[in-house]
Write a protein that binds this DNA or RNA. Structure first.
Lengths: 228, 228
DNA sequence: CGGTTGTTTGAGGACGTTCAAGTACTGTGG
DNA sequence: CCACAGTACTTGAACGTCCTCAAACAACCG
């Protein structure tokens, strides 16, 4: 499904484009395409050369790593406002990971060459992208900390606390548990047991709705980082 | 130990600064400082607010995560030409990780405010930084793949292959094994056993000098990614 | 040369995976 | 609206990997 004009107007309010001069945005959108894709769609595969910058306008996508005989692992999920695989586009290198639609999503696809050109030509765009990359860099570092320092139930707790943006103790999982398990570097079985463990720490799960009754306790359980 | 002028001249040939107009470099170096620091020096701690961009002019530094009762983990090592913790500086957020000197190093410290100012003012600098961040982003993604998809000896193999820049099968470890173990998310004991396992795959270790007799075999052992 | 620190090896145990059932959802057609 | 199929999730038991603890050995440094 491919729309132009109509959808492109909506793309202009994306954090990535919002602050930019109209002239620049026009150049970026000149050859851009909007796609609305169902869950499960494979956007690109690792090893392919970077053809487009993908911007998530709505929905949820995941970056997926695979190795022979070792199955798949989710590197990270991205949502509304995130641009993904910018590094491959910037460096003009093949994708290190594959892209998968986790939940029906509306995506903006900007040709890689256009992105590279505008990054050079427009410093406001470069600045915005820089901040975006810096933010994502910290996401990955936080995840590495979790993997290297914490066990399964602690990683789950850390993830849930992270998702609780409003800090009201209510989290809605936007991915199926199999994928969440792959993101958290454990099997679905271990994820299930991790949830069981967290029940003793005030976490109740009803389907995809999670309630964190005692956020403070959870933080203590996983040694949560205040640092955003 | 703090030097100015003399050392600052040498800093101009750093990849980060080399391609930039002299006027910009002058601004960056105006309040910058060069420090030569011995192994073990703690550069900054996680949670502190970002005061300086650190550029490694020579030597080796590590980013270290710590959590109570869980010890320390090395997120990544950086060497000559790398700038570290740029994300914290760019976003003006506290460091997510601590900085440690792994091997005596010469560092360039640029005040965070100067960096942010120049990032806004000079698009060439922004572009350089963007590429640097993109490169580092891919380093972290590669590491996440290793952690999520591979076992101990495979992670070690992957690391050794990565260090073998000239692809001649000769690697010199630039960090003590305890730190390498922390970077690879395993104990020193497990690292030792991982080396033992790799002996059967043509890896001989004499102190810090490693010889990879059969690179092809090693790649197969760990499902090595060609993707740079 | 003795003390300190780093590395290896072994034994036992914890955590997480695998394999195998069983239970609960979800959506579809009758 | 219910029956049913297919999928997702949970639970249990056995296993394996990696960690912990402990000791021996090697390397380094004053």
């Amino acid at each position: 499904m491919t729309t132009r004009e109509g959808g492109l107007a909506a793309a202009r309010v994306t954090p990535l484009l919002a602050g930019l001069p109209a002239r620049v945005v026009d150049l970026l959108l000149a050859h851009a395409v909007i796609q609305v894709l169902p869950a499960g769609t494979r956007l690109f595969e690792q090893g392919e050369s970077a053809t487009h910058l993908h911007v998530v306008l709505a929905g949820r996508v995941g970056l997926v790593a695979e190795a022979e005989d070792r199955g798949e692992a989710v590197i990270e999920f991205f949502t509304t406002g995130d641009s993904i695989i910018a590094p491959a586009v910037i460096l003009d290198l093949p994708y290190l990971v594959g892209g998968r639609v986790v939940e029906e999503s509306r995506l903006l696809l900007v040709p890689a060459a256009d992105v590279r050109h505008l990054l050079d030509a427009d410093s406001a765009f470069a600045r915005t992208m820089l901040r975006e990359l810096a933010r994502h860099w910290r996401l990955l570092v936080r995840q590495l900390k979790d993997l290297k320092l914490r066990g399964t139930s602690e990683r789950l707790a850390s993830y849930l606390l992270m998702q609780d943006r409003q800090a009201d103790g209510r989290v809605r999982l936007r991915e199926e548990r199999k994928l969440l398990a792959q993101r958290l570097a454990m099997t679905p079985e271990s994820l299930s047991r991790a949830f069981a463990t967290l029940r003793d720490h005030g976490v109740t799960a009803t389907g995809r709705d999670i309630v964190l009754a005692d956020v403070e306790r959870l933080r203590r359980h996983c040694g949560f980082d205040e640092i955003r």
